[in-house]
Amino acid sequence: MLAGTKQQGNYVEDIYSFNDPIKKDLFNKIIQELRCTVCQNQSLADSMAPLALDLKKVIYQKVQSQQYSEQQIVEFVAERYGNFVRYDPPLEWGTAFLWFGPFLILVLGMFVLAKYIKLREDKI
C-alpha cells in the first residue's frame, strides 16, 4: 500500500558531524533504536529513505542543541509514528503478549509434559 516516497534528498551521510563524541554516540544510539516506517526492516541508521533522512536531520538538530534527553527524542518520534518505530517497545496492552507470552507457553508446556508423564506412569 505504500504508494509514494520522496525522491529528492541529501544522500551524504557526512552531514551528521559532531565535535563532541558523547553527542555522536547519543545520535548513533537513537537512530539505531528507531525503525524506519518506509522500509520497515531497517533502522533509521540503515535507511536511506527520504523520510528517514528528514528524521535523522531533526534528531541531529535535537542532539546538537543539547536540550533534549535520549528519551525525549525517542518519544518525539514515537508520538508521531507510534510505538511501532521503537525496537524496544514499552509494556502496554497491545504488547503484553511479547512479555508474558513466553511464560504462558512455558506453563502450557509444563502442563502438557506433566500430563504426558502421568499417562505413561499409569500405563506402567
Binding site: 500500500m1 505504500l2 509514494g4 518506509v38 523520510l51 528528514d54 528524521l55 508521531r80 509514528y81 507510534g82
Partner: peptide, 15 residues
C-alpha cells in the same frame, strides 16, 4: 516544503 507538517502528522507515504 520541508515536510515538517508531514512529520507532525506522522506521514510516511503519500497520498
Amino acid at each position: 516544503k520541508e515536510g515538517r507538517l508531514g512529520m507532525d502528522y506522522g506521514v510516511y507515504g503519500v497520498p
